[in-house]
Amino acid sequence: MGRVGKALKQVLKNYDISQNKLAVALGVRRSVVYRWYHELTDPTAETVADIAQALKSINPSAAAELIRLYLGEFLESDQED
């Protein structure tokens, strides 16, 4: 498991967003967010987009940070080409 959970954990800590607040914004149980946060399961690609959208409604900077952390290496390598 990995990259999404690590990025999510960092963003929630950095922007002081609780797992419960994200769960409410997503319309899922907190236990679902807990499992992503602790890297027990990985969300689908579609769910990652939903997570970013929910974060955007809470704090747009948090959403941008999630995308940067999650796709950073991909985006940086794309800019080098």
Rank of each mutant, 00 (worst) to 15 (best):
I67C: 10
A49N: 01
A64G: 12
E76C: 08
R29V: 04
T41V: 09
E46F: 03
N59F: 14
K9E: 07
T44W: 13
G72M: 08
L40F: 09
E80P: 00
R68S: 13
G27E: 11
G5V: 07
W36S: 03
Q10P: 00
V24P: 02
I17C: 04
S57C: 02
V11G: 04
L69C: 03
D42E: 15
V48L: 15
L66D: 03
Q79S: 09
W36E: 07
E39Q: 15
A7G: 01
G5I: 04
Y70V: 00
A52F: 09
Q79G: 00
L12H: 04
A23G: 08
D50A: 08
S61I: 04
Q53P: 00
P60C: 01
R35E: 15
A45H: 01
K9H: 08
D81H: 12
S57T: 15
Y37G: 06
P60W: 01
K56W: 02
K6C: 01
L55C: 03
H38V: 11
R68L: 12
A45D: 14
A23S: 09
S61E: 13
L66G: 03
T44E: 14
W36Q: 02
V28T: 06
D50P: 01
D81W: 07
V33L: 10
L40E: 15
S18D: 07
V24N: 00
E80Y: 02
N20Q: 07
G5S: 07
L69G: 04
K13I: 12
L71T: 10
T44D: 15
P60F: 07
A54Y: 05
I58R: 03
I67K: 09
L40M: 04
R30M: 08
L26V: 05
L22G: 07
N20K: 03
